[in-house]
Design a protein around this nucleic acid. Structure first.
Lengths: 350, 350
DNA sequence: TTGTAAGCGTTATCAG
DNA sequence: CTGATAACGCTTACAA
């Protein structure tokens, strides 16, 4: 455990290099390199000497240098709209873990649904010469689009499944989710079913869900009722929606029997407001959410909702990337398309 | 927008380099380098030519190469126990955003509270020659400890504030949190106050909180009542605790008046169980949690809890790192110590 | 203000 | 199985 006082060079980080290890182990530097990349090709005797030197010096290979030399850095960038929200955290978790398991590191940045921030994150990632990139959704600005296509590396678009696009797709169909919720309620006998939009403009996934809802309604000869709240805070918007659709005197004549909300936040706001106003849920009005947030099973009544496959998306996105990189064997003839299902979680509210 | 068919070299990523830009702009490569690092020192005429060439080629500087040359990579690693849990997501978010704002990128990995996984993450990060490293808490194995100290870069320990340790500390005192909750309840007139531990062994922060609780109880001449549930699932453990402390026939004679839970999950489990059993909360038994999870304001009654400063921890950790790196001016004589306060959120349950 | 030369720490290539 | 040499794309040091 001696600390060999290396003659301080003018440049460099001061950490032990592959050459220091080679010198101490009395082998060529390239043999040390092979010791890490192809251990089988190094004679046992030298391997032992190298192992000792590595330990002695506390040597950690410089991956940036390795990546530069091989132009193949074991790093993958992911741009996600929101790290701390209830939606994407699971995806990040499984994406990261799956990559780590195969020796790849995750570079993370958030875009807050801003195309400009997304572009700047992609640009910064590209500077690290990543092995692959993952983004959320299909809406990018032209510059990002160009960066992505000309990067020459695997790109995965997650969450929003769009079969016609070039990048690998891993996600689910929001349209199908809208249909799924509507069919469920229809099957339970509900007819006057409404859909409540997200007050957050730009949530295009929710619009897709309402389209699916409207399709099924028309299929059954029913008129779609789409309500767009104006309140910004989700809970307030949900409250506003249930007041307009089920509690207002104007509606009292023909109140809706069931409401599908754009997400669980809205549904929770509605649930609480309805409950405090004495509305029986699901007796007078059933409620379905989307997202299966952490609080959803804890509400009273507990919230029936649709769970998007967040964990699966992260894992499968990582696996597809690793396959593209040749780290894992290809799993399917065309693994570009990965359409996952969402699970409807039946609880008390509908 | 022509795609200049570069003569395919035997090595390299194929992307435009600083030399390509220099050639096209008819300047030396080093001038292009300066154009990015010290724009002021490049003549306007050349700057314009360089800008045009950069755009034409879609040039993105290779940060790995730059980091290698300068031995100063603008990348920071963070090891967090859990990305997708309710606790750490905010910290990751603000940490990442603050770093990004100053041109630094976040490398992320999760440890799941495993010292071995933490070590492997730190080792992998070190390979990228990061500018700094952030970890959670003070419990690392010897190898990690050694890697951290010998890395020669700023290291920040977050969440668990420990004034005696060498690395920069950004966090709060769990002991103080335990005291805070107890004093609050005592101030409201409660005397028979219990503390419910986390059934998850290894949650040492919760033990610190119970110590703080016990201190204040003794201060007031009261006997601490610490209950350790055996059920593994948090909600079940909470249920188990409230049954033992407030609902069981054995306890009926002298039921506790208030309970402090190790976290909001336990508190929520207790809340629901108590409510279904007809227990009046807070009338018969007040409840205080810890964490201020997303569902806590939505419970009925809404949960009084203590909010740890997750967002602040992430931001301050990043700022301290940037100060250490000289990117930002030092804010205080000794910015190593950053003890933050937790906010008690008074709601309906206590 | 600009350029030249020499690394940074690693791996691809080719020759033993 | 092992090694010398030349990249990889950039920045530091120094010179003009």
């Amino acid at each position: 455990m001696s600390e060999p006082t290396a003659p301080r060079k003018r440049r460099g980080s001061g950490r032990a290099t592959i050459h220091d290890v080679a010198r101490l182990a009395e082998v060529g530097s390239i043999t040390v390199s092979r010791y890490f990349s192809e251990p089988g090709r190094v004679a046992a005797k030298r391997s032992a000497r190298i192992a000792a030197a590595v330990k002695e010096l506390g040597y950690v290979p410089n991956l940036a240098a390795g990546g530069l030399a091989s132009s193949r850095a074991r790093i993958v960038g992911m741009v996600i709209p929101n790290i701390s929200g209830p939606i994407f955290a699971n995806t990040i978790q499984t994406f990261s873990d799956t990559l780590n398991r195969h020796g790849y590191q995750l570079l993370l940045a958030s875009s807050y649904f801003s195309a400009r921030q997304e572009e700047s994150a992609v640009r910064a990632f590209l500077g690290w010469n990543p092995a692959a990139l993952a983004v959320v959704g299909r809406f990018h600005n032209r510059a990002t689009e160009k960066l992505l296509t000309s990067a020459g590396i695997p790109v995965v678009e997650t969450w929003d499944y769009q079969p016609r696009r070039k990048p690998i797709q891993v996600g689910y169909s929001n349209n199908a989710v809208g249909e799924q919720a509507t069919r469920y309620l229809y099957g339970k006998g509900y007819r006057r079913i409404a859909f409540v939009q997200n007050s957050l403009a730009g949530d295009l996934s929710a619009v897709d869900r309402s389209d699916g809802y409207a399709t099924v309604m028309r299929e059954h000869g029913l008129e779609p009722i789409i309500y767009a709240p104006t309140a910004e805070a989700p809970f307030d918007a949900g409250k506003q929606a249930i007041e307009a659709l089920a509690l207002s005197p104007a509606r009292r004549a023909r109140p809706v029997e069931a409401i599908i909300f754009a997400n669980d936040n809205l549904a929770a706001g509605a649930l609480l407001a309805g409950q405090r106003a004495g509305l029986k849920i699901p007796g007078q009005c059933a409620i379905v959410g989307f997202g299966d947030y952490a609080f959803s099973p804890l509400l009273l009544p507990s919230l029936t909702t649709i769970r998007p496959p967040g964990r699966e998306i992260g894992e499968i996105a990582a696996l597809r990337i690793l396959e593209q990189l040749g780290v894992l064997p290809a799993s399917a003839p065309d693994s570009r398309l990965n359409l996952l299902a969402c699970e409807l979680i039946e609880r008390e509210s509908a």
